[in-house]
Simulated assay, not measured.
Amino acid sequence: MPAAHPSVTRRPLHRRALDVQVFARDDGLFDVEASLIDTKTHDVPLAGVPRKAGDPIHEMRLHLTVDATLTITAASSDTLWMPYPGACNEHGDAYRRLVGLNLMKGFRQAVTERLGGTRGCTHITELCQILPTAVIQAMAGSVIDTREGDAAGNPPFQLDRCHALRRDSATVAKFYPRWHQQAAVQPATSES
């Protein structure tokens, strides 16, 4: 990815890699495996111990099981690499508090309420924030109908969730004509 000023000499310092994989299970449920890995390009001291360049500073994993409605039925986490062994990995079963939440209904706010600050691990809690869109991508077109909307007559979930899929956009007019709405006309204002 080019930088804003690619002609300037630069050197890499840090990398954060996020990965989310979703698996369909034979029992009709879905497993979500998410990870966050931070690495540095130089040696750094952590808690008085040198960490070599390329070794993870953080490696956290979150495991969820969700049903077809995207409700979490099981949750756990692992901390494999951390700055403070014996402390960072002592959040126990905190991420089981995700059980019962729905990824499409207030999930991000509920995560912050249940696991924000000292109630969880900052990095795993941040990792949770990307899960709704990642899991929806995994299920779009197979588990979730992205074309016709739901049985209650509501439009497909993705409409009005980003600028390209505004109900009054040319994109919706072309690909979702049933759900297209004309742009509201703004009344002219007079300046004094």
Rank of each mutant, 00 (worst) to 15 (best):
T122D: 09
G54V: 07
P132K: 15
G86V: 08
V22L: 09
F157G: 03
E191F: 14
V172R: 03
L18I: 13
D31M: 02
H123A: 12
D55I: 08
H42V: 14
W81A: 12
I144V: 15
R161M: 14
R114I: 05
E126S: 10
L13V: 15
A173V: 01
M139L: 11
I37L: 10
M139Y: 10
Q137R: 15
V185R: 15
D150N: 15
L98G: 00
R15A: 10
R61M: 04
M104R: 14
A68L: 08
A110R: 12
E113R: 12
A47Y: 13
R97W: 01
M82E: 07
A152E: 14
R11K: 15
D31R: 08
A68C: 04
Y95C: 00
V66S: 07
Y95M: 06
A68F: 14
D160W: 12
H63R: 06
G120Q: 06
R97T: 03
V44P: 01
L165K: 11
R51M: 09
V20C: 14
I37V: 11
G141V: 10
T112N: 10
K40N: 04
A183I: 06
P2T: 14
D93Q: 06
Y84P: 00
S76P: 03
I136W: 15
Q109Y: 03
T65M: 02
E59V: 02
H63Q: 05
P56F: 09
L80A: 01
S77N: 07
E59R: 08
R114E: 04
A173L: 03
G149S: 03
D67H: 13
C121F: 10
I72V: 14
A17Y: 03
T125L: 06
A74H: 05
L29R: 09
E148V: 04
V135F: 09
R10M: 15
T41H: 13
H163D: 09
D38M: 11
P83K: 09
T41S: 07
D150S: 10
L101S: 01
R108H: 06
H58L: 02
D55K: 07
V22Q: 11
T69R: 15
G153Y: 07
P12D: 11
Q158N: 05
I72A: 06
P6A: 08
P50V: 15
P2D: 15
S77R: 05
G28H: 03
M82C: 11
T122R: 05
M82K: 10
F157A: 10
I130L: 09
I136P: 00
R25K: 06
L165Y: 11
T73L: 10
W179L: 02
V185T: 14
A53I: 09
R167F: 01
A34W: 03
S142N: 06
H42N: 05
A110E: 13
A140M: 07
D168H: 13
P45H: 11
E126F: 10
H63T: 04
A17P: 00
T73A: 02
H91S: 01
R11H: 15
H63D: 08
R51C: 13
T189D: 07
Y95R: 02
T41Q: 11
R119H: 13
G54H: 13
A68N: 12
Q181P: 00
A74T: 06
V172G: 00
L98P: 01
L165R: 15
F107S: 06
S76D: 13
V135K: 11
R97E: 10
L159K: 04
L80Y: 01
G149W: 06
